[in-house]
């Protein structure tokens, strides 16, 4: 049997394996059991193995070995040196970081991790500032922008009310996470200012609605997966037994 023939059998075999694995995982509705755990451990093994190979191909092969090989084959020593100068430091840093795998040598890899965390923190700051904070504040401030208002008077009222609602909702949601309290008498329970307390209560309502929509979305996605599995099971039963 050659590879092509084998590949023709791959789909039915894969379907049966998928069928069995689906049932093993769905058995969790009864409770945690041996079959469920076996299926989960197989899944973790396959996912980790695939990730390891992807990293090797995409990083070590595509960004380290292949460029050096190509430059070497081109026969340009200066280019090779430039490539080495480009690649070697990061290779050394990567090898240095792998000392974290050993409990005895773990402390040695901390400087590399510090470099990674520093660059990552700066990237996150830049993204949060220019990607979310400024645009979203501008959008909140421009919610009552009359240029974006509809021309129809009837819709204008609805637009205005909705805009006020959005503005109030945004501000009160933010104020819910304001936990500063006033200076209080010894022994008394610290409380926020009554104005902030009332704003936080309103914000709590908006958060409840947002989380309700979020929960409904998660449930909907899970229901689609359930429908998809049901469809798959039926297709396998249909193809094998019917």
């Amino acid at each position: 049997m050659n590879l092509e023939q084998l590949s023709q059998w791959a789909d039915p075999i894969g379907a049966v394996i998928g069928f069995v694995l689906t049932l093993m995982v769905l058995s969790y509705v009864i409770g945690d059991n041996f079959l469920f755990r076996i299926a989960i451990h197989i899944f973790i093994g396959v996912a980790s193995g695939y990730a390891a190979v992807i990293i090797f191909y995409n990083i070590f092969w595509n960004q380290v070995i292949l460029p050096l090989l190509l430059v070497f084959l081109q026969g340009a020593p200066s280019g090779l040196l430039v490539s080495l100068a480009h690649i070697l430091p990061v290779l050394l840093l990567g090898g240095w970081m792998l000392t974290k795998a050993s409990p005895r040598l773990a402390r040695l890899g901390t400087p590399v991790l510090a470099f990674l965390v520093g660059v990552g923190a700066a990237t996150v700051i830049g993204g949060a500032l220019f990607g979310t904070l400024i645009p979203q504040v501008a959008a909140t401030a421009g919610v009552l922008d009359l240029d974006a208002a509809p021309d129809d008077t009837g819709k204008l009222v609805g637009w205005f009310i909705s805009s006020i609602f959005i503005l109030v909702g945004t501000v009160t949601t933010l104020s819910y996470f304001q936990f500063g309290v006033r200076p209080h008498i010894e022994g008394a329970i610290p409380t926020r200012h009554p104005f902030f307390e009332s704003m936080a209560t309103i914000g709590q309502g908006f958060i409840a609605i947002t989380l309700g929509v979020f929960f409904a979305g998660v449930l909907a996605a899970a229901l689609v997966a359930l429908v998809d599995r049901a469809r798959f099971l039926w297709q396998v039963i249909q193809s094998i037994f019917l």
Binding site: A10, T22, V25, A39, I40, I42, F43, A47, Y50, F232
Partner: peptide, 21 residues
Amino acid sequence: VWLVSTFQVPVEASLLAVLAV
């Protein structure tokens, strides 16, 4: 692709289906 489709997709999708319950 066959490996991912056979092992990873059914298990993850089934986990999500159990999540619905």
